[in-house]
């Protein structure tokens, strides 16, 4: 069952969100995308993050979805910064950055879904749609 975008947005912007919660909200954003496409969101992990596995699943046969790949990786990176006990742990500025990154992911995916009827959201990846599926998957893995 998809989480309403308004709820996700409100939760991201709520003060004092923990890194765990922000990461979970990132996962909900990607779950919304996958469910809208008719997929069951994976429970698997990539590089220790379900978020990255969900992104990978969402980008299959949809290369333009890679336009949020680095945003997902930044979310995971900020989670690590805040959780690994290093100098950034508990840092309010790093936490604020993680909020902004989560918000960008929400805006991108939400926007992409809202304009789906208008054509491709990300023009840069359009041409690789012309490739055959095997080649596409090889590239996605690469």
């Amino acid at each position: 069952m998809a989480t309403p975008w308004e709820d996700i947005e409100r939760a991201i912007e709520a003060p004092g969100q923990s890194p765990e919660r922000l990461l979970a909200l990132g996962e909900q954003i990607l779950e919304n995308w996958l469910e809208a496409k008719g997929f069951t969101p994976t429970e698997a992990k990539r590089e220790s993050f379900r978020l990255l596995a969900l992104h990978h699943q969402g980008a299959k046969d949809e290369p333009s979805f890679n336009a949020c790949r680095e945003t997902c990786r930044e979310l995971a990176w900020h989670y690590n910064l805040l959780k690994d006990g290093g100098p950034e742990a508990g840092n309010a500025a790093t936490r604020a950055m993680m909020v902004m990154v989560a918000k960008h992911l929400m805006l991108f995916v939400r926007g992409k879904m809202e304009v789906a009827e208008l054509g491709e959201f990300c023009c840069s990846s359009r041409p690789i749609r012309a490739l055959d599926k095997d080649e596409l998957q090889t590239q996605a893995r690469g």
Binding site: E74, G111, V115, L118
Partner: peptide, 19 residues
Amino acid sequence: FPLKSACCGGAHTLCDSDT
């Protein structure tokens, strides 16, 4: 700057300006 290569929505600036 964590959004250095993030999407700015450029492709849809005319057909969906709000996004």
